[in-house]
């Protein structure tokens, strides 16, 4: 174990721990753009710099290993000046359209400009202008807002393994692109949205059907209703409606989702949902009350059970239903109707 001091507080960490991780351990927040604990650290954004006593320069806390006896200051004047400089440079090439930007409220750039009182850039010069790539059905890519932190590229290659996007060109014209800049539609992108989830600015945003601000939403942690991986995710709810789904760090998904979990949630509030019981009358399904529906089912169960025995009734339970519902369904069939004719589509 190594002992170091951060902002005057002593912390013990294992060898190989970065300053950023050590600070996190004792609840000290160091801002980051390009860092993600699941990725190989690449230290490119420089917003996480800290002052290390005796070091010649400020150190990127996400890549610098903690050392025995190290004395670190995370918000000293020189650190704050440096972070302001980074933000100033980013803003020199950013649209600053926070009033209408969809990402407002969940934007690290916005949060840090507020934290360090940066209103606008002090630099004048050319600004990058790219057309928005709207060719993917689920999200927009607006390179004019990109700060080149690289997280989307590394999530796609290191975690998702799709490798649909990368860095293109050098210097001022560096941007995130699909091969030969053909656009997302013609790339190998599988629309998992894992890049969108990690983008710290408004460069990658979902195509929302509803206008909302993140601060108006309430996250509800739940388990995905698609395949058996059991990904954890947050349903963002505004006015009794799911407006977005964000991946959560669950034991089986570690912050990843697929296109279905991330984007195919529209079925929940869809107008075609069944809203009342239906009973077939004269060949047609017509609306009915719960009482009518229950009465009909109960009379049929009793009639069939009386005439042919309980084994003349069979129930199919559901691989999409809850554990508790599957339990109750087999209890109904076995304990109340009296048959073991209960199965579900495990085989199909």
């Amino acid at each position: 174990m190594i002992t170091l001091t951060i902002n005057g507080l002593e912390v013990q960490v294992e060898e190989g721990t970065t300053i950023l991780q050590a600070a996190k351990k004792i609840g000290i927040d160091i801002p980051t753009f390009c860092h993600d604990p699941r990725l190989v650290p690449h230290g490119s954004c420089r917003i996480c710099v800290v002052e290390v006593e005796g070091a010649r320069n400020l150190q990127a806390s996400c890549t610098t290993p903690a050392a025995q006896g190290m004395k670190v200051t995370t918000e000293s004047d020189v650190v704050v000046e440096s972070r302001k400089g980074v933000l100033d440079l980013i803003l020199a090439n950013h649209p600053l359209d926070c009033l209408t930007c969809q990402k407002a409220g969940r934007c690290t750039l916005q949060d840090l400009c507020y934290r360090y009182d940066i209103k606008e850039s002090s630099f004048e010069g050319e600004r990058k202008e790219y057309e928005i790539d709207d060719s993917n059905p689920f999200y927009y890519s607006d390179q004019s807002k990109c700060i080149l932190c690289g997280k989307c590229v590394y999530v796609c290659s290191q975690l998702q393994g799709t490798e649909a996007i990368g860095f293109a060109e050098r210097g001022f014209t560096t941007h995130i692109a699909t091969p030969f800049d053909k656009g997302l539609e013609h790339s190998t992108c599988v629309s998992c949205g894992n890049c969108v989830a990690v983008c710290p600015v408004g460069a990658l945003v979902p195509k929302s059907k509803t206008k909302f601000r993140y601060w108006e939403t309430k996250p509800v942690r739940t388990t995905c209703s698609y395949c058996g991986v059991g990904c954890q995710m947050d349903l963002l709810v505004k006015d009794n409606k799911i407006v977005e789904v964000l991946p959560a760090d669950g034991p089986s998904n570690h912050g990843l989702l697929c296109v279905k979990g991330r984007f195919a949630y529209n079925f929940v509030g869809h107008p075609d949902r069944l809203k009342t019981p239906l009973i077939r009358k004269d060949g047609e399904l017509v609306e009915a009350s719960w009482d009518e529906a229950y009465d009909l089912i109960v009379s049929k169960v009793n009639e069939i059970k009386g005439e042919f025995g309980p084994d003349a009734i069979a129930g199919f339970s559901s691989a999409r239903g809850l554990n508790e519902e599957n339990y109750l369904m087999q209890k109904l069939m076995r304990g109340v109707i009296g048959t073991n004719n209960i199965d579900h589509c495990a085989r199909l």
Partner: peptide, 28 residues
């Protein structure tokens, strides 16, 4: 069907699912 009963979706109820690695997780 002769009778159709309208049900709540997974996002409209509390409970649990068990995933492929036998992990029992909450639905909310």
């Amino acid at each position: 069907a002769d009778v159709v009963l309208p049900a709540a979706s997974y996002a409209e109820k509390d409970g649990t699912f068990s995933n492929t690695e036998r992990r029992v997780q909450r639905v909310r």
